[in-house]
Structures are given as structure tokens and as C-alpha cells.
Design a binder for these strands. Sequence first.
DNA 1: TCATATAACTTGTACACACATATTTACAAG
DNA 2: CTTGTAAATATGTGTGTACAAGTTATATGA
Lengths: 382, 382
Amino acid sequence: MIWKRWSLLHFARKGKGMKEQNNGKQLKYFQIMEDLKEQIISGKIQAGDKLPSENELSQQYQISRQTVRKALAMLQNAGYIYAEHGRGTFCSELVRHTRTSKNIAVVTTYLSDYIFPRVIQGIDSVLTAEGYSIMLKNTRNSRGREAKCLEELLQKDIDGIIIEPSKSQIYCKHMNLYDKLDEYQIPYVFIQGCFSQMKDKPHVLMDDCKGGYMITKYLISLGHKKIAGVFKADDMQGQNRHKGYVMALQEAGILYDPEMVVWYHTEDRKIHPYQCIRDMAETPGIMDAVVCYNDQTAFEVIRALREVGLRIPEDISVTGYDNSRMPNLEGLHLTTIAHPQEKLGEMAAELLLDLMRNGETESAKSVLIEPELVIGNSCIQR
Amino acid sequence: MIWKRWSLLHFARKGKGMKEQNNGKQLKYFQIMEDLKEQIISGKIQAGDKLPSENELSQQYQISRQTVRKALAMLQNAGYIYAEHGRGTFCSELVRHTRTSKNIAVVTTYLSDYIFPRVIQGIDSVLTAEGYSIMLKNTRNSRGREAKCLEELLQKDIDGIIIEPSKSQIYCKHMNLYDKLDEYQIPYVFIQGCFSQMKDKPHVLMDDCKGGYMITKYLISLGHKKIAGVFKADDMQGQNRHKGYVMALQEAGILYDPEMVVWYHTEDRKIHPYQCIRDMAETPGIMDAVVCYNDQTAFEVIRALREVGLRIPEDISVTGYDNSRMPNLEGLHLTTIAHPQEKLGEMAAELLLDLMRNGETESAKSVLIEPELVIGNSCIQR
DNA sequence: TCATATAACTTGTACACACATATTTACAAG
DNA sequence: CTTGTAAATATGTGTGTACAAGTTATATGA
């Protein structure tokens, strides 16, 4: 790296007084620092190795010794190198995560709602037994908060992360933060969902497509033909469950009607499904069953249907997903898909332990959980 | 501070080649740094104050601007000051306890069960807003595990603890660990319960005695006379709720019969209340109502009563405590005492924040929550 | 051969200068 | 009263030099 080009630019600026030239942080001392840091991280310069002397560096890079000193000072401050008066400058013992902080971060969309307590419980039971402590973070399913979480966690002393991505259907805009995790060699495991561009990363999730297929097929087997669907648009699970729903319909020779499907987003989840289903229910006989994204949604749907005077399951069958055993359904047990909850947490924790111990080898395999139908009394033979 | 003396010394050294002269670190940049640091610590320069410009300092101290810059760079690195390009150099907000890890530990008896998710949710909502991260630990209501948790936490970088004591009724055997917390000046807040010997420590809990009194009095007002009780023996809540139960009975002139009370421990909680109530129910007419320690226990009690053919509330009234909205009760809503859950978490978090900011002043007060009766359909007029 | 001086390195301190760039202020034009 | 401009002043970057002081290998002398 020679500074001829920069020098010319530099002096050109003098005369002209350009302004936006120096935005990309192409400061000499910064570049040299980055260059040396890169060599250290890549292993070209190893722990204990002597760096070139200040004068050598100033010749190599064609800059003054003072500037070299500034770069070295920054590296020293960051702990990459140390200087010995009269002897030279040396590469530090890289703290390659030797200090096992025994902290694991768990990032979920929500904390108290729904299935999360049990998932966290499962993670805890495995990790506590191994002496780890759990740091809890939640994103409320917002991308911005997920990015903020990761930034905060990068500042902290953690050995690994279990993360439920927020809005996994939408393309991930902060890949750089995950790259940082890779750079720092902090392993992470996705649960529940996974960004499409990171499918090869370790993850533990359900075969949602198959689940959607199974529950829809079950309704068809009961004689239902006009099956509405309510799905979440902004996460992978919603897409896949919908895909399974469509597959089952097509297999049974039932025409897929997009008008029969309600899509909603995280922000809408409390009102949109409720409103749409209520509107649809105004037209009598338009549907005889509703496949819902999950039990929570099913709860809203049931509320809407009951308010327009329809009985579950006598008039309309309703299915859920996750087997969350929601209260306040007055003796109604949802037909739903089993969610392993604690088991999922345990599997994610064990996968993460494996990653931390052995790195990203073939032994640490992602898990795809087989869905299982749980038959309640919210569906009826037609 | 003028450098005439140093200069003379400096040149004198040149000639003589003295060695031990420079031990006291009378380097110019070091001295200036110390001088400025002293002014900041003493308060002569306060947070936000503008320091003299580099040129002014170089004139004041009669040294070059470069040397001033070195001194300022060190102070900046240490966090005492910050520089703004074109504006000047300013004194930073002095951080009182330098180690602001921004981590808070939350120790509860359980994680996923019952009311804890919502309590944790409440804690999280307050602390996340303030930039803190939550480290989760659970004790499964075991003293040994509580001690182990505290030991682990003492190794870690935390700013405060919110802890639900395990088996708060039994005398605390690991006071030394709490003493250590005091010694390290790590503030902590008790929730739900509090060890008897630490009643003066900050805490957020319910007025359980009053709650037990209220719910028993409610049963009496419905005409019940033979009111059994099921209480937990190993925590403070159980003791207090029992105390309230006795008070209400005595006030109504009903003789307190210890035979009508079932005491159980954490380890027994799933079987003992169930067994005892089942046995008692064998004798017809022995009781017309049961006051339960909490909703979970009420659930077990109801299971036992139903199994011997008794109907709730037609044959026997049952009350709970905590208003946890438990599922699987088939349309039965427990008459219970409201538990603030999220609110309790929030209050504990806010109390802890207060403690961390201001220390143990009189402003940071413990909270005693007023119980509130929630009337369901599990009790009937007799 | 062995101790020692020294030359030839190294990093550390200090200064002087030039120019880049951001902010504030004062003043003039509209 | 607002807007634009220039001057003054602030920190930031980069270079040059000189000397201080620690370390090491080499040459020197008894």
C-alpha cells in the first residue's frame, strides 16, 4: 500500500479546496491500522511476532514515522499489540475468546406471551446445567429493535446467541451485524424462523409447510370444502404454513381462492384478522372452516365468529397452530399442531453447545421438527 | 505550571546521562494530563464545561500544541473529556461507578410457570428502555440453587439484582452472599417475598395477610362456615395468607381448627394438596369451601374434589390467589386475588433503578401492594 | 576467553510547521 | 428580519526534525 495516489490527491485538494473527498475514512493512520489489524486477525502476524519497526513501516507505507506511531498507538490501545522500549513492537496474545464468560444471549420476539416462556424454560434447563447464564432480550418483532439488541450484545461478554429472527420473511437488512458475530466467532442458532439468505446457518425450526398441509388435510378429511385461511405475512412460518395449506387444497382438487385468505402483519395482529373474518362471516355459507396461523390468531377468529352468532365447531370448524393451551375458550379445545416448546428450546441450546465446543462442523446439524396433529373439539365432521 | 525548571533539568540530563531522574513520571504530557484530571475530579472543571483550547493550553503551560494534544488524547481515552471538531474540548459527564455493565440479574423461583413470565416481562419493559440487559436465573425454589446463582452472579458483571427469595419462610442460611452484594455495592430488590431477617431491605411485595383475610371474609359473607385452607409452608406468602385466613375466621367468631388446614412444601406441591383434600372430601359435609394458597393449588384441589364427585361451586366453593387465568378449567373462573404481575415487575425495576442511581436513600421506598378481590364463578351463596 | 565499550538498532518524548475541516461570529446585502 | 459570506477560531491530519533512553549484537582491548 503506497500513498502516491493519496499524496497527489492531498496536494490537489490544497489548491482546489474539495470537500467530499475524504468521506470513506481514507485517513492514512486509519488505513495502516486496519491493514495491520487485518494481518493480525488473518494470522499473517501471529501472537508474539515482532512487527516491522516504526521506521521500516514508515518506509514501506511511504508515510512519516509519526503517522505510523498514531496507527500503532491505536492498535496498542485496542489490545492488539504491545511495545517494548528499545526492543520493538509485538503482536499480543489474541484473546481468541479464551475467556469463557459463560453467558448466552437469548433473543426472542416476545417474552411473556404465548409459547415463549416454555421455550426459554427449555433453553434454560440445558444451559444452566452446563453452568451458563442466560441473558434475555426481546425485539417485539421489530427489525430496528433486533438490530439494537445485536449491537448491545456485541458490546457484551457472551459466548453464543439463540435468536428468533424478527419478521423473518422480509429480507434481512442488518447482515453486517451477523457478519460481526462471525468475525468475533460468536456462534448463533436460529429458532422458529430463519432469514432466507441464511438458510445454511444453524437453526432449529418446525416443518411449517408440512404442518399447514396436515391440518388442512385433516379438515378436508372431515368433509370441509370451503376452508378459509388466516396467515401472518411477515415471517417465514406464515409463508410456509400457507404453502402447506395450498398444497393440501390442490391435492384434494379444491380450487385455491386467494379471496379466502387473510394476510396480516405483526402490527395488525390484534385487529386485522378479527375484522376480516367478521366481514367474511357476514356472508352466510361462504366458509365452513378456518385454518389459522396460530392459536392466538384462532382465538381472535373465534371471537369474531362468535360475535356474529356462529358456534364453534357446530357452524364453523377452526384450527390453530402451536398447541398453546390458551385459556378463556370456555371448554373449547383447539385442534392444532403440537409445538415442542420446551423441547425446541432444549434442542436449540444443545445445538449451540455443540457449536461452541466444536465449531461449525458437520456434527452440529440444524434440526427440522416434524409436526404432529393434536385433535381437540374445535372441528366437526361435515 | 511553567516548564522552565523541567527544561533546565532536561538539558542537564543530556550532558550527564542521569538515570533515575525520570522515575516520578515528570513527563510534560503526563503532568498536564494529571493537572487537568485533578481539576476535573476536584470539580474545578465540571461536566459540560469547555476546556481551554489547545493553543491556549500550549501557551499557558509553555509547551507545544502537540504535547497538549497527547495529554488531551489520554484524557479522552480515559473518558474524562471529549472533543468536538471546530467547537472545542469539553468535560464528560463523570461516571460515578466506572463499571456500567448495564446488566441486571433477575432471579426467580421458576421461569415459565404461572405468573413469572409476565413479571419478567414487566421488569424487561422498564429496564430495556433504560438500556439494560437482563440476565435470567431460576432457583426452582431451592436454597442450594439460590446460593449457587448468587455465587455465579458475584463473578459476573452486573449492576443490580431483582430476586424472588426461595423458601422465604425458612431462615436464610447464606446471608454471607447478600453481605457480599452489599460489600460490592450491588443493589438488590426482593420481590414476592422477603427473608424475615432482611425486612428492611428494599422489596416489592403484596400484602398477603390482607389478601388472605379478604378472600376468607368473602367466603364467610357468602354464608360459608366450614372453610378449609391449603397453604404453602415454606414461603412467607403462605404464612401471611394463612394469618389473614385465621384473622377472618376469628373476626367472624368461627373457631379456627388446625385440622382443616393442609400445609405443603414446594417438593410436595403437585401431590400433597391433591391427596389431602381427596382424603378430607371422603367425609361428607366436613367442609363447604376451600381457601387455596394460589391458583395452581386451587387447580389441584379442584381436580381432587371433582374426582370424588363433588361439583364446583355447587357443592364446594374454591378460591385461588394470583388471578393467573389458568386454562383447562372448563368455563370455571376462579374467585381469586388480583396479582399485578407486569406492574409488580415494573415497580421492582423502577425501585432498582432508583437504588442504582441514588443509592439507598429514603427516596427509594419498598412497596406493599394492596390486594384486590377478583370475583369469578367458583364460589356460591350458601 | 572474557569483560566492556560502542555502534546500531529500537521505542519514547518534544517541538515546529502546514494544511484540512468544522463551528461560531460578525457584518453586509437583500 | 433573514440570508449569505468572510473572518476567526476550534480540532484533526500529516510531515519534518531532534534528542532521550532502552536493547542487542558486534567489535575492541586486556
